[in-house]
């Protein structure tokens, strides 16, 4: 006798939830209320989010396509783009190594003071960008602690690339660690334990087991870190010294052009940054929809 197992009892059919809520009169609102609330919410979003974005592109192209490209081909603009890319190219990998290392220490081991360490990693988020710049001026400025010694030895930190990179590293410090810690906590240590018990070395375990597990979360963190690194304004503004063609990043170049009433040029450079933001949002949404189970739970949709 072979008993036929009735799977329908074990797997109740998944009911589509959302339409039911809309039709369930006691736990939803009258149609006109729903429509009004939706309209108010979307109007708020359009007015506060989309309109500024549209304004950037319209203002950039106001004086024609030619002026637009001329503003971007300007040597100072090119220098600013180069500096922005350099700063991000140094800051993001540094914080990437830090993020992976911090997440490994925090999620694979138990030790005292762990929650304090996690809060300290988040600290740069609660510091005003201007204060972030200020702390480096206090150290490396001509009246700062290390300033006189550095200028004696001909090392320039403030008002040059190292200062800009430092400020960028500070403001983007938590992004990748913050993304990886919840993800790796969820994943636990079982996979690594298995690999190690089968004879893999520590590095082999990391490269072949851990890294493939966290790659999408890592990409997510890098994406956000990079967007902030390229767009940072306040902290970089304090340490840069605003030397055209030398210590101007793209956001600072936007400010200079704007203050010189070269509005189209300012918006042209700004439109590049806006495109970066759109690209970031696009990839981010793609990751959230496509690889949601490989991101930390808070990012799932």
């Amino acid at each position: 006798m072979s008993p036929a197992i009735d799977h329908s009892l074990q797997d109740p059919p998944q009911l589509p939830r959302e339409p039911l809520i809309e039709k369930n009169a006691v736990i939803t609102e009258a149609p006109w209320v729903r429509r009004t609330l939706t309209a108010v919410a979307l109007l708020f979003l359009c007015g506060f989010l989309l309109l500024p974005l549209v304004a950037v592109f319209v203002e950039a192209l106001r004086n024609g396509v030619e002026t637009y490209f001329e503003a971007l081909k300007d040597p100072d603009a090119l220098a600013a783009i180069e500096l922005t890319l350099i700063a991000a190219a140094i800051a993001v990998p540094l914080n990437l190594v830090f993020g992976v290392s911090a997440a490994w220490a925090i999620t694979k081991f138990e030790f005292r003071g762990k929650s304090l360490l996690v809060s300290l990693i988040d600290l740069p988020f609660s510091v005003s960008p201007v204060v972030a710049g200020l702390i480096y001026v206090l150290i490396f400025g001509s009246h700062g602690w290390a300033g006189p010694w550095l200028s004696e030895h001909g090392i320039k930190v403030l008002f040059s690339t190292p200062g800009i990179v430092l400020a960028t590293v500070f403001v983007t410090f938590p992004f990748i660690a913050r993304e990886l810690i919840p993800l790796m906590t969820e994943q636990g240590t079982d996979d690594e334990q298995a690999a190690l018990s089968l004879g893999a070395t520590g590095w082999q375990t990391f490269w072949r087991v851990t890294l493939p597990n966290i790659k999408w979360g890592l990409l997510y963190g890098v994406l956000l870190c990079n967007a902030r690194a390229m767009g940072e304004f306040g902290a970089v503004s304090v340490v840069s010294g605003h030397i055209r063609g030398q210590t101007n990043t793209m956001p600072l170049h936007v400010e200079i052009l704007y203050n010189e009433y070269q509005f189209s040029a300012a918006f042209a450079v700004a439109s590049l940054l806006a495109m970066l933001a759109l690209l970031t949002l696009g990839i981010k949404s793609w990751l959230e929809w496509r690889h949601s189970d490989e991101l930390s739970a808070t990012r799932r949709h």
Binding site: L42, L45, L49, L50, L51, P52, L53, A55, V56, E59, L224, A227, M230, G231, E232, F233, G234, M250, P251, L252, V254, E255, Y258, F263, A266, F267, A270, L273, A274, L276, A277, L278, T280, L281, G282, K284, S285, H301
Partner: peptide, 24 residues
């Protein structure tokens, strides 16, 4: 689309937001 757009202020550099809001 709107759900993705919510995070725009995180992704848009603040200087860009500043001049765009001023233009408006």
């Amino acid at each position: 689309f709107f759900d993705a757009a919510i995070d725009l202020p995180f992704a848009l550099p603040t200087a860009v937001a500043g001049i765009a809001l001023t233009a408006l």
